[in-house]
Amino acid sequence: MVGNADLFVNWSRKSSLWYLLFATACCGIELMQAGASRYDLDRFGAVFRATPRQADLMLVAGTITHKMAERVKRLYDQMPEPKYVISMGSCANTGGPFYKDSYCVVKGVDLVIPVDVYIPGCPPRPEALIDGIMRLQKIIMKKKNVYGAKA
């Protein structure tokens, strides 16, 4: 009975992942194109929301600079639980091509917020993004919610 409740809750969470439209740089365009007609993200139940208050997935797409890092943290804090973060692209993973010589790029968004799935690529193809979202869905399906275990 309890197992079924977990299954039901996880299934409903993974099937309607509303993502925050947080596109900083080039990966943002691949995100937009993934959400458009050819690689449709809507079939996963994922619609974009403009405000973090209504989103449960934050797709960090693009380079995060030091000036922006504080805003990323604030947006993450504004999202209600349960929330997930996907780091899309090399810049969000580790700083990307700006790792070596740039003075104002945060070397990876995981220095600012906790990340669930990393998607490599510069920029990752929309298929890679969809693969990343499906992996996140698998992670969500494994979560135990009912007996107070960490969500």
């Binding site: 900083t24 740089a25 693009g62 380079t63 600079t65 000036k67 922006m68 805003r71 091509p97 700006f98 070596k100 010589d101 740039s102 003075y103 104002c104 790029v105």
Partner: peptide, 21 residues
Amino acid sequence: GYLHRGLEKIGERVTYAQFMP
């Protein structure tokens, strides 16, 4: 300035061909 990545400084540290990407 929220996306300032210092491309001009990077340009001084890489070669002409390496700056293309």
